[in-house]
Design a protein around this nucleic acid. Sequence first.
DNA 1: ACACAAAATATTGTATACAAAAAGTATATC
DNA 2: GATATACTTTTTGTATACAATATTTTGTGT
Lengths: 221, 221
Amino acid sequence: MSESRFEDLAEQVYRTLRDMILTGDLVPGQKLVQQALSERLGVSRTPLLASFSKLEKEMLVELVPRRGAFVKILSATELLQLYEIRLRLEPLGASEAAIRMDAAGERLLNSVLEIHREAVASGIAAKVRLADYRFHMAIVSIAHNPILERILSSFAIVSKSNQSGLMKPAPKSLAEHEALKAALFAHDQALAEKLMLEHLVEARDAAARLAERAGTIRVEY
Amino acid sequence: MSESRFEDLAEQVYRTLRDMILTGDLVPGQKLVQQALSERLGVSRTPLLASFSKLEKEMLVELVPRRGAFVKILSATELLQLYEIRLRLEPLGASEAAIRMDAAGERLLNSVLEIHREAVASGIAAKVRLADYRFHMAIVSIAHNPILERILSSFAIVSKSNQSGLMKPAPKSLAEHEALKAALFAHDQALAEKLMLEHLVEARDAAARLAERAGTIRVEY
DNA sequence: ACACAAAATATTGTATACAAAAAGTATATC
DNA sequence: GATATACTTTTTGTATACAATATTTTGTGT
């Protein structure tokens, strides 16, 4: 079996929609009207509905029976929960990546970091967002833990999709990524884990403040 | 909106299949033949296919294009990865449950623990397995962290589905659950977290030995 | 008996049709 | 102007049909 495995339309549509959520082409709360979207993507409703089912389980889309599919709006509570979980899992990814770091891993990290530098210099928020996502994903891919990668990927997409404002100044975030890279290159597991944790704690705290301020507001579609 | 929300056929089928995987009615590697299964469940292939897409993203089923859907077989490596992640997430759930423990939570835990005792006494492995799953799920539901609940639930199902033998003697596991309950009732976050970690470490270590022994064998459908 | 090719059958992926439900619009009443 | 009701249009959920692909069975040659 192979890397050249056939990819059916449902899988293709799923990936397309996922990217569209990450880049902001599809925004939280947006209704995914089946007929219109199937025409736009050039497929029938069938693979589109299959992709909705997939996206639902990755928390990128919410299916409301008999009303339709909507790009996920994260409540403040949910965002906080996401961060609590990321606080536990991303250091695991960093730790595993530190163990597994090799020449290919270094090239990958250097590459995504260069793109991140350029994005920060450009001042374009969408570029920064994408570069940040790419950096985190690069780490977990170096860790060779596909299960972890899957979880963190969907978490990252849904949280970035819902955060129009960054939770930390871009230059600070970049500097932290640089330090993290150095720890990873040095195979310093403990430091990589510590730095990743610190990298996320501030954002978690910000999310906690948001959740406290928001109380418990229910999201209606 | 309400607790009495309509549940479409895809969702019903998804739940049914999920349960069947947990209870062992559907076993790892089993092919889910669409026509036969749709007849058995009394629905057309359409909601069934939707449920497959959902189950795929919860790692309970593997979809092989043009060949079909198969109940997930976990490789030794994947099982280890699952445990590494659980080692980070279940203590989080226990910690949050210790904070949130209330009268209803106590009743729930007492109830699932009683069922666990009975299962252990019965010596029926399938009952023990289900009771163990229920105990862990009760904790995370008390934690009121639905995102965590979703992840851990699918992890628990796929790992139990793939472990015909228990990774620890049932009476030992039960005793550990009892101790964990006490810590939760006492709102002792740190102890709850520590006990949950210890509860899982042995199984993780067993999974690591399995992975080492297995090398890297690819699973073919 | 075994290997290979061809034919038959089963299964999957996808488009489409139809019924049910929701959403939108028009009209009547206070 | 606000609200209720009736009607129309749009959308969703689901079943079914059809084409493509995979699998199984059968036939033929050595």
